[in-house]
Simulated assay, not measured.
Amino acid sequence: MREGLRELLEAQAGMVVVGEAGDSESAVALAAKERPHVVLLDVEIPGDDAPTTVARIHRHSPETQVLILSMYDGPELLRSLLAAGIRGYLLKSASIQEVVSAIYSARCGDGRVLLAVSRESLAQVDGQPSDLLSDREREVLTLAAQALTNTQIGSRLGLTEATVKRHLRNIFIKLGAVSRIDAVNKAVSASLIKVDKVHNGR
């Protein structure tokens, strides 16, 4: 599929494919090296999950716009990818014309986000932002914002340290965050948690 898509894209006027990658690590490394205008990313790329890969690409190449290709349009995945800053989400059933149009749209940098998903998923994404994090995840992140360690958070909530780590990992994935402070800031901006002051602790 990747080879066929590359041939189709290379045939488009004004479009140059600077590289392709078979796993998330290679994709991030290639983006860091080439600084492409647009990355077309398969949501099921081997390696890191898609939100993490998007966040890493943006960290190494902030100007790169990321478009997602997926077989699924579940609202939770879509929310986490939107939080990570994608510029578009296309189902793999999209025509090549739709893919090319999305790439040109992302390249123009007008800030629009293209979502080719079902009405049901879009309604859930728009209508239930507070459901992005579970109640327990919000509790963990609120305590993390106070610079408590994993052990201290576990003690407060009656959880093991391993469980706290798992919750934080899930939070990072859902929010497309790369650190605790990043997760806290994104959650506060999205009104998912409320904190009096964000502590830049570990």
Results as ranks from 00 to 15, higher is better:
Leu157Pro: 04
Val39His: 03
Thr163Met: 01
Glu137Met: 10
Val100Lys: 08
Leu30Asp: 01
Ala144Thr: 14
Gly4Ala: 07
Leu143Tyr: 12
Arg6Asn: 11
Lys197Ala: 11
Gly88Pro: 01
Ala106Cys: 08
Ala162Asp: 03
Val184Thr: 10
Leu148Asp: 00
Ser70Phe: 03
Leu9Tyr: 03
Leu9Thr: 06
Ile181Phe: 13
Gly201Leu: 00
His199Val: 09
Glu76Thr: 08
His60Glu: 15
Ser80His: 09
Asp23Arg: 14
Gly85Lys: 10
Ala32Met: 04
Glu137Gly: 03
Ser61Lys: 08
Tyr89Gly: 00
Ile45Tyr: 10
Arg138Glu: 00
Gln128Glu: 08
Leu40Gln: 05
Lys186Gln: 14
Ala50Val: 05
Ala106Val: 01
Arg107Asn: 15
Val66Cys: 02
Arg35Val: 08
Ala13Glu: 15
Gly22Tyr: 08
Ala29Cys: 01
Arg156Tyr: 05
Gln65Asn: 07
Glu34Phe: 04
Glu34Met: 11
Ser130His: 14
Leu77Met: 08
Leu78Gly: 05
Arg112Val: 02
Ala145Cys: 11
Ser191Pro: 02
Leu132Pro: 00
Glu7Ile: 07
Ser130Thr: 11
His60Asp: 08
Asp126Arg: 14
Gln128Pro: 00
Val195Thr: 05
Ala190Met: 13
Ser101Val: 07
Ala21Met: 07
Leu82Gln: 02
Gly154Lys: 07
Thr142Ala: 15
Ala190Ile: 05
Gly74Thr: 15
Ala106Glu: 00
Asp131Gln: 14
Asn185Arg: 15
Leu175Lys: 07
Thr52Glu: 08
Ser24Trp: 05
Glu161Gln: 15
Leu41Asp: 05
Ala147Asp: 09
Tyr72Phe: 12
Gln65Trp: 06
Glu98Ser: 09
Leu81Arg: 12
Pro51Ile: 08
Arg138Val: 00
Asp135Glu: 11
Thr53His: 02
Ala162Cys: 02
